[in-house]
């Protein structure tokens, strides 16, 4: 699979996840990027992981975090995604889609992120960002900044 196709796949998984959340959240796409896979000699093996983080702009109150996590998890299960791992200390979990996309729901401070990645992608011979997402000048101001009558209450 080429990088372009991988980006489409992870974006589909992310868009689909956000579309399933009600009431809808405000969110921004972070840059799509690549990490090279290397062998024991630190040589590129011709594959990259393609990934993207999405940063939720809506302020989700502590009392609503669990509800949001539940909505997302319910949707992923309904889509036939499989649970890969779960953080028992906080609402954070990883699922994999039948297409091999790894999707993660995570919380850091007040920030909710949903990320997706796909690992067996043909390397274009470099690593780093593929696009800038909704951050033309880098990852400035990722903290949530939009209040919502339901999620922020």
């Amino acid at each position: 699979m080429g990088v372009g196709e991988a980006v489409k796949k992870i974006d589909t998984a992310l868009d689909d996840t956000f579309a399933a959340v009600s009431p809808p959240l405000k969110w921004r796409k972070g840059p799509a990027g690549m990490s090279q896979h290397r062998n024991l000699l630190n040589e590129e093996n011709g594959e990259v992981t393609v990934s993207r983080d999405c940063y939720v702009r809506t302020k989700v109150s502590k009392s609503k975090i669990a509800a949001l996590a539940e909505d997302v998890e319910k949707h992923w299960k309904a889509k036939g995604y499989e649970l890969e791992s779960r953080n028992r200390k906080m609402p954070s979990f990883r699922y994999s889609t039948p297409e091999g996309v790894s999707v993660v729901f995570d919380v850091g401070g007040d920030l909710v992120t949903i990320s997706a990645s796909i690992s067996d992608t043909k390397s274009p011979g470099r690593s780093g960002d593929i696009d800038k997402g909704d951050f033309p000048h880098g990852l400035k101001d990722i903290a949530p900044d939009v209040r919502d009558p339901y999620w922020s209450k």
């Binding site: 690549m34 896979h37 290397r38 062998n39 024991l40 594959e47 992981t49 790894s102 990645s117």
Partner: peptide
């Protein structure tokens, strides 16, 4: 193996 030796820094990895 062998890419697991460098995958610690893989984006979106645990």
């Amino acid at each position: 193996n062998p890419s697991s030796h460098s995958d610690y820094f893989d984006r979106n990895s645990e």
